[in-house]
Design a protein around this nucleic acid. Structure first.
Length: 536
RNA sequence: GUCCCCAUAGCUCAACGGAUAGAGCUCCUGCCUUCUAAGCAGGCAAUCCAGGUUCGAUUCCUGGUGGGGACACCA
């Protein structure tokens, strides 16, 4: 039984005891009690239900505790909590439930087909360190949604057509000819590096050919960077695919047909503000007066494409510098007649960079930025990913590059990984101590101590943690959880000898317990894209 | 000017509206003859201001203050 199943069961019994309908149970949740309370889980619902039931909270708590006392040690506590303690047998059964690979699959995630698009950095320069934040957020969320039973397709949208490609081509051509790039072009040193490895026939290329070449090379680098970061996209969607398919024209026609557009001053507009109920503050141009498509129209076509592929939910992850685009995109999705509820834009705040005492302005055109690869090489992917994952998406993050490199050994990720390494070590030592990890034990004869109990309980909270992550669209609670689990383990390890030939039953029980700790640590780290080393 | 985000310990971050606000880093005190000291045990130290809603507010609402970002027929 998982904690959610337990909660659902307790809720049903409360409904029966007080003759209530589902709608009246909104505040019914299991919570972890604060440290000074001697209980396994706590229910605060009686306080919230006092008004509805017209009874004092403590009275309700007493009645609820009585209704549950057949299976739990249930104690009503002022002002109206019910604190539960589990029987050991319950904990053993719950741990076994965790062994099933799909033990967390549940509604509403089960059956969902989610398209998750993130990073989508312009391929006009090497990938910036800041892309690590979006990559961490997107990839971790994808893994968490999958663990909860959803089908998730991850996607990176590549802007491989348009003005910036021309500009990149002209910049590379200039470098090739030994002159400075155009004034508003790309000044970064990476173009000089690219010149060094250009094929011979490049001498006769046009600017457009240089552009196509540069984009293709950058795309290779981006793929390599993402892979080194532990992120593998299911699909790299090229904007040119849309154009080859005539999607923007079809999208425009669909919007016109639905009566959502009008012409003004030689341009075609989408009435995101004037023609519909939306948060957008003005209408947006789809086709410029010179006849060319805006980026917005192409982007709408891309989103229509995603919906047409049969996803039940389409999620975009954008940096805060794009927050102003959210309402117009939501409006466009609605204008196409697509269910707005199935489209979600997640915004994460930007990453500011500090090197020494200097705040660095990021600009690919000026070429002054820190490549993601540089940090990966110096700090390592595990520490990078844990660092980014540990912060909620709304936090304003200032990344101190020097500090990150200097302190990489202090990164909490090692504290968590160390748990895995220590347990692996115990298992590899078991044989020489004459203890068989596979040997069973008599659960009834085990007196579970406080440290063991704390560990078992903590393991059960992984499920709730993942649900919280999904609810808040952030993996940061998982890092907190892993830190807490690691602390429980290290404390246990210090006090409790696992391999003890004199007490084989206790050894077998502790190995059983640690096998689950190891599995949860490995699984949790895996959901963050972080490795679980067997030795450190 | 309008909109979005943020404000918790010296620093970086946690805390479904619940009980005595938790961690990591830093600093201080102890602990390796026993499964890995990248560890354990302990100490110092915090909710920006003013109202409001609530049985209960770090959390929700309003107004300040301070900071980051966005407001194109660019992509």
């Amino acid at each position: 039984m998982t904690l959610s199943q337990l909660e659902a069961g307790l809720k049903r019994r409360a409904m029966a005891a007080f003759a209530l309908e589902e709608g009246a149970m909104a505040g019914f949740h299991l919570a972890a009690p604060p440290p000074h309370i001697d209980a396994d889980v706590s229910i605060a619902w009686p306080i919230a239900a006092a008004k509805l039931l017209r009874k004092p909270p403590l009275k309700i708590a007493e009645e609820l505790a009585a209704a549950l006392s057949a299976d739990f040690e249930a104690k009503p506590v002022p002002p109206g909590f019910v604190n539960l303690k589990f029987r050991d047998a319950f904990l053993f059964e719950a741990l076994k439930e965790l062994e099933k690979p799909d033990c967390f699959a549940q509604p509403p995630f089960k059956g969902e087909k989610i398209n998750l698009e993130f990073v989508s950095a312009n391929p006009t320069g090497p990938m910036h360190l800041a892309s690590g934040r979006g990559a961490t957020l997107g990839d971790s969320l994808a893994r968490i949604f999958r663990a909860l039973g959803a089908e998730v397709a991850t996607e990176f949208y590549v802007n491989n057509v348009g003005n910036q490609v021309e500009l990149l081509g002209r910049s590379l051509k200039a470098r090739c000819e030994g002159v400075e790039p155009p004034e508003n072009g790309y000044q970064g040193a990476y173009l000089k590096d690219m010149v060094a490895v250009l094929p011979k026939e490049a001498a006769g290329w046009t600017g457009a050919q240089f552009g196509q070449y540069a984009i293709a090379e950058m795309l290779k680098l981006h793929k390599a960077d993402m892979k080194a970061f532990g992120v593998e996209f299911d699909r790299w969607f090229l904007e040119s695919e849309l154009h080859d398919d005539g999607a923007p024209a079809r999208t425009l026609a669909a919007l016109k047909e639905r009566g959502m557009t009008y012409e003004k001053e030689g341009a075609v507009w989408l009435g995101t503000s004037s023609m519909m109920d939306s948060d957008d503050d003005k209408d947006r141009v789809l086709v410029k007066s010179d006849g060319s498509n805006t980026y917005f129209l192409n982007d709408i076509a891309y989103h229509l494409n995603k919906f047409d592929r049969g996803f039940t939910t389409v999620i975009d992850i954008w940096g805060a510098d794009h927050h102003g685009h959210v309402s117009r995109m939501e409006a466009a999705v609605a204008a196409l007649g697509r269910e707005k509820l199935n489209f979600k834009v997640l915004i994460h705040q930007q990453v500011a960079l500090l090197r020494g005492a200097e705040l660095i302005k990021m600009s690919k055109r000026a070429g002054d930025f820190i490549p993601l690869k540089e940090l990966l090489d110096e700090v390592g992917a595990d520490a990078c990913r844990f660092f980014f994952a540990a912060r909620g998406p709304h936090t304003h993050l200032t990344f101190d590059v020097d500090l990150a490199k200097k302190h990489s050994n202090d990164n909490p990720v090692f504290y968590v990984q160390y748990v895995h390494a220590r347990i692996c070590s115990i298992f590899s030592n078991a044989a020489e101590k004459g203890i068989d990890p596979a040997a069973g034990f008599d659960a009834a004869g085990i007196a579970v101590n406080a440290d063991e109990r704390a560990l078992m309980l903590k393991l059960l909270w992984l499920e709730r943690t993942l649900l919280d992550c999904a609810r808040d669209y952030s993996p940061h609670q998982l890092t907190t959880y892993l830190m807490e689990l690691a602390a429980s383990f290290h404390s246990f390890y210090d006090k409790c000898k696992v391999l003890d030939p004199e007490h084989k039953d206790v050894s077998a029980f502790r190995l059983f317990l640690l096998a689950h700790v190891k599995a949860v640590i490995a699984r949790g780290l895996g959901l963050l894209g972080v490795s679980a080393p067997e030795r450190m």
